[in-house]
């Protein structure tokens, strides 16, 4: 029994300590973003602002952040909708066509993609995008992002489609349903939680992506939020409150989405990996 108490104590304090380590910087970001520069230097960094100001947020919004926000939304939606759709179709085909060598080969190729740091292929991707005359467009970010999202999406979705009992497919086939019909009316509703999970997980990655926009675009009009953050920080590095306001503003939409869809994301993530 003494051992029991000791490890609980250790795990418990690790848990609470980590909570502090996570929350302190986050708290500091939010509090500081409402201070003006003089208050920032004069005050205790953890004190609440005595005269809270929205000036930092104003500065960020005036620096074209609404446009970057729209760009990020376009890139994220433009990646996730096609990526999840084609990954779902591929996963369905792989599960239903078990035994086909072509499909097994395709699946093997996708699995290989999991082991390779795809960012290492950025130079040929850059060449490809130039040759397709897509350089410095949002599509230049979208196309490779779709490809990079496929391996993990296919893996997670095949796992879930396999869970659909074979008898259901059989009885539908007897009733004359086509594969496309079964995909829509049987597999789609039953794997919806997995689809949402995959969409959120990849969406997060694309929304926060930095390397592809950095390399495949150049003009400010094509900037996405992480890149905008970086350039904003380069411009206003001394104005810490403004920089932190930009961090808050770019993260806020995700935090709101997280608050809404958290259960889905957390349970989906553990289901996808802890096997």
């Amino acid at each position: 029994m003494r051992g029991l108490r000791r490890l609980n104590w250790l795990g418990g304090s690790a848990g609470w300590l980590w909570l502090i380590i996570v929350m302190v910087p986050l708290y500091w970001i939010v509090v500081t973003s409402f201070k003006d520069q003089t208050a920032y230097f004069a005050q205790n960094p953890f004190a609440l602002p005595t005269e809270p100001t929205l000036a930092n947020y104003q500065l960020v919004i005036q620096s074209d952040f609404p446009r970057y926000f729209v760009n990020s939304v376009i890139v994220t939606a433009g990646t996730i909708v096609p990526a999840v759709t084609i990954a779902f179709m591929a996963a369905y085909a792989i599960v239903r066509g078990a035994g086909s060598r072509f499909l097994a080969g395709a699946n093997g190729l996708f699995l290989m993609g999991l082991a390779i740091p795809l960012q290492a292929t950025i130079i040929p991707v850059y060449l490809l995008i130039i040759r397709m005359r897509l350089y410095d467009s949002l599509l230049a970010i979208i196309l490779p992002s779709i490809a990079f999202a496929i391996p993990l999406s296919v893996l997670v979705l095949t796992n879930f489609i396999r869970d659909v009992p074979k008898e259901l497919f059989e009885s539908m086939r007897v009733d004359g349903a086509t594969e496309w019909g079964m995909l829509r009316t049987l597999a789609l509703p039953l794997t919806r939680p997995a689809l949402v999970t995959v969409a959120i997980y990849n969406g997060l990655g694309v929304w926060n992506g930095f390397l592809l926009p950095l390399i495949l675009t150049q003009s400010p009009t094509q900037r996405t939020l992480p890149l905008a953050l970086w350039t904003f920080q380069g411009q206003y590095s001394v104005n810490v409150p403004a920089v932190l306001a930009s961090v808050v503003l770019t993260t806020l939409p995700i935090v709101i989405l997280y608050a809404v869809g958290r259960r889905q994301l957390l349970s989906g993530l553990t289901a996808g990996f802890s096997r």
Partner: peptide
């Protein structure tokens, strides 16, 4: 049904993977 995913992954995943090896034997600015 696997074709769209396969095409996307081959064009922007596998081709660059081979391409990077090819490019390592070239000179390009």
């Amino acid at each position: 049904m696997v074709v769209p995913a396969l095409v996307m992954f081959v064009v922007f995943g596998v081709v660059p993977l081979v391409g990077v090896l090819v490019l390592s034997f070239t000179q390009w600015d």
